[in-house]
Structures are given as structure tokens and as C-alpha cells.
Amino acid sequence: MAERRPAGVFRSASVVKVLLALDFLRGRVVDGRDREMVAAMLRASDDAAADEVWERGGRAEIVERMVRRAGLRETVPPPQDMPGWWGYTGISAGDVVRVYRYALEVPEGRFVLEQLGRMAEKGADGFDQVFGIAGAVPGPWAVKQGWSGFEDVPDRRPAPEELGLGRPALHTTGVVAGKIVALLTLHPEGTSAEAAAGCVTALTRAVIQVTGVGRGSFPEGQ
């Protein structure tokens, strides 16, 4: 195992969709539409699907429930003045590992991991998802990527340093050969998505080459 700053808190971006899906599916018999919605949220990182799951689940209440269920330590809901911004849920690399461990243990986790194993090359917004784990490992794997700050962000936001706002975030997380990998990264303002993706993929290759599996957070994108 390799780790660096596993308790450092980052804005989750779309990585929180794993948590949303696990909460939504728990104890629920889902119909075809809901199943397709959750699948799109996980495989293509569909934000419209996440918006619906977030609203139906009670927004911050989802995060609070999952903190209790999965034994999360650093995860917190979005800032109170931004309740609709699920991607501003704060999470650590250590808690991402705990979320995947939870997914591997509960019945609803099977569907979630199956969908992550069928990740689309492009997200619903057109973002290239083939980086990090997906760029470094041929598979099979179950992967959830996260990206934030490469396009417009809301005008009304907390101080720039909170959750790394003002700096692009790019995360790669998932399960590879039964092992959990979680890399959460921030990059200098103005970094392109392509440059950040290259950095994260190189980091992933290094972690896997040295340890075979790892977890870590890299606040400087290097």
C-alpha cells in the first residue's frame, strides 16, 4: 500500500456519484428508468442524472447517511450556501477507499461496480474519461473519474482556497484486480484538461508500478 495525505479533503467532483448511487439503490427495487438513470450517472458521469438522484435523496442527507453507513471520516456535504452543488461535497482519498470497500460488501455495490466496469470513453458532457486508471491499466477495472474547474464555475462560491476552488481538480478512483486505487489531484489555475490528464495518468502508472496498488492525494498536481 502507498499513500500520501489520505485525509486531505478535496471537492469530490463526479467521484461523489459512487456515493449517490450506493445510497439511492440501498433497499430499493428500482424500475427500468431508475436503473438506466443510475447507469448513465456512473458510466457516462451524467450530471442531469446526478441532479435527480441528489434531489430525490434529500441532498446533503445523502452524504450524512453514507458517512454513517460507510464509516467515512473526512467527508462533508457541500457548503451550506451551495446546497445543490453535489460536486462540492468534500471527500478524502482515504474516504474514497472506504466507499469502495463498502461497495464491495453490500448487495447494491455489485450493480454500481458493474456499471463502473463499463465506463464510457467520453462523459455525457464530452469530457475524455480515459485517463488515470483507465489510461494506465488495460483492465478489467471498475473506474469513476472526477473533474471540476476546467470550465465555468458558479459566480457565488466560498473562498478560493476552500475545497481547492479556483484550481482545476482531476481525480481517478476505482477497483483494479480487487484492489482499490484513489488519486485526488489539484492543478495550477489555467491547467488544461489534457495536461492534467497526462499528469494523473503518469501518477497512476507510478503508483501501480511501485506498489501494484495505492491510494493518495496530490494537492499540487505533481
Rank of each mutant, 00 (worst) to 15 (best):
R73C: 04
P77Q: 05
V76L: 12
A60G: 08
V53S: 02
G126C: 02
L20I: 10
V99F: 03
V112A: 11
D125E: 06
P107H: 06
G109C: 04
R110K: 13
A21E: 03
R59P: 10
P107F: 05
L72K: 05
D46C: 11
G123R: 01
V29M: 13
P79W: 03
A120T: 15
Y100R: 06
E108M: 06
A44F: 04
V30W: 09
R69M: 08
E61H: 03
L19P: 00
R65L: 01
V30E: 02
V106H: 00
Q129T: 04
E64Y: 12
A40I: 11
V38Y: 14
G123K: 00
W54H: 02
G84C: 05
I91A: 03
E61A: 15
L113G: 00
A120D: 10
D81M: 10
E36F: 11
F111A: 08
S45V: 06
W86C: 05
P107M: 05
G126S: 00
A48G: 09
V96W: 02
L25F: 01
V38N: 07
V29G: 07
G57C: 07
G58S: 03
D95G: 04
A40M: 13
L25K: 00
L72Y: 00
R110H: 14
Y88G: 08
E74S: 11
P83N: 05
T89I: 06
A60R: 12
V76Y: 10
R98D: 06
V29S: 14
E55L: 14
R28K: 06
M119S: 10
M82G: 08
Q115G: 03
M37W: 13
D128E: 11
M37L: 15
D31A: 10
E61R: 06
R110L: 12
D51W: 11
R98T: 07
A44R: 11
V29K: 14
M41N: 01
R73H: 08
G32T: 12
D125N: 11
A103W: 10
P107N: 04
A49D: 05
A48Y: 13
V53N: 04
D51H: 09
R33E: 15
M82E: 00
E105A: 15
L113K: 11
K122L: 14
L22R: 07
G126H: 00
D95E: 10
V106Q: 00
R65G: 01
R98F: 03
I91H: 02
R73E: 14
Q115M: 15
R56K: 09
A103G: 06
S92H: 03
V106L: 01
M37I: 14
G27H: 13
